[in-house]
Nucleic acid binder design. Sequence first.
RNA 1: CGCGGGGUGGAGCAGUCUGGUCAGCUCGGAUGGCUCAUAACCAUCAGGUCGCAGGUUCGAAUCCUGCCCCCGCAACCA
Length: 495
Amino acid sequence: MEKKLYIATAIPYVNGTPHIGNALDYLIADIWTRYQKQNGHEVRFQVGTDEHGNKIAAKAAGLHMDPKAYTDSTYVNFENMVKKVGASYTDFIRTTDDHHVAAVQYIWQTLAPYIYKGTYKGWYCVGHEAFFTDKEVQATNGICPDHQTPYEQVSEENYYFKTSVFTDLIRDAIMTDTMKIVPEFRKKEFLDLIKDGLQDVSISRPKKNLSWGVPVPGDPEQIMYVWIDALANYITVLGYPDKEGWQQYWPADVQVIGKDILRFHAGIWPAMLLGLGLELPRKLLVHGFVIVGGEKMSKTVGNVVDPNEIIDSYGLDAFRYFFSRHIPTLDDGDFTWEKFENAYNSELGNDLGNVVQRVASMITRYQAGVIGEAPQGEHDMSAYHEVMDNLEFNKAMDEVWQMVRSLNQYIENVKPWEIAKKISKDSEAESHLSEVLAYCVGALLQIGDLLVPFLPATAEKIHKTFESGVIVPTDGVLFPKLYLHTPDPQAPKAA
RNA sequence: CGCGGGGUGGAGCAGUCUGGUCAGCUCGGAUGGCUCAUAACCAUCAGGUCGCAGGUUCGAAUCCUGCCCCCGCAACCA
């Protein structure tokens, strides 16, 4: 029996609309999920939303809504985005779910030996709903640059979680790759960050400062701050602690996170798990940010790219293609509409789409669509599997495109159209031709297999066209040319 | 002396750990070939002091030293 696998994504805060970073989370997790399913694993794939906190409460109040009613209306945007990128998720969790809330309170009680009450004094920014260090306050002359409001000196009672006591265990787990942080440089970065030990973390707020959240068990004056509430989702969604079956999936095989939230997932979260006596996730996949034309995406600059627009214009597989191949899985990547369209036209259209088309067309033309026995694709896939296992999906796509290229070169070398001309004179030409074309089909079917995790719809079309032994014509070509952001070479030249 | 990543032909990158077989790949450009194909495909060519200055070596993009420049991060920012 293969082990059941669990893959989890960070849950975004529902204050706002889904952006390309969220889409990237879902896409990466989905590629891994489909890859593992293809390898015969059963996979549970979680997504969800973080719905508590002051910003939500404030936004709801602004709309004269109850916070829950507000999140009921917005979480859907995220679920739609998950579906839009084709993510094959199995579970969607909201931190306002009843089971989650109850489970979080159970977790708090279980962690009680590591929780103590303390007083926090510091400079507080209402807009951030967060405290800032003296250094930061000095650097900004006491005015929060984001909100243009002065920091206030605030003192409040909080509960703290003793993450510090788990420092050595966590450091050890990271160093030995028991909890493997991928890529390596993120691992180093984090180890450096905790070289002086983890610092205890404040996990509650007085009710007067934070009303919308999970109540602290046994203390009506305190509400849980984001950490325990949000991070716990990764296990509560599986049914922890009371529903059957979660043990089959925990520990997670991979947790997909952005580089901005590594410290929480590599520090606080493992501490919680250790406090609960649970295993740590096997791997943390830390991806980078999507930048646009070399600049950070930001609303004020107005360069925000909406994933919906890409998918609506070019199709889902085109979106999945660009963001899996041209945005490195483990690093920042650059998006521009020109880059996207060039990749679409030349790589998806000219390379992949065209080679599918030309092979299908030759078989139809020379052999009335009959393929015969296609041999197993003989390309060595070990490089592909190696980079997949290293979670470098972009490199796996490079491997696939290498194969596409080779196939085009092969066709050019063998020149099936010339063999076809000899059929009337040369008795061996006919079998030679069908052998050549069957080889091409074998290669295409292999390419199709490798594309399953990345471009599910395209992979299916390729299989459908070739796998039956007879060409099944498709409607239109795979990736028709589009010139929405780059000049159309066929357009009449401007004077 | 805070930490990390990076500076390679017009653009984007690989190669640096394990010195020579490295100056490579993709896009873009030029030329040619082909006609099965989505004006697609294939081949060839142009070309870069491998950030700068020293050093080690028979030999350095690759190792050592110093310097310059760019980009993140710097703990409660999902």
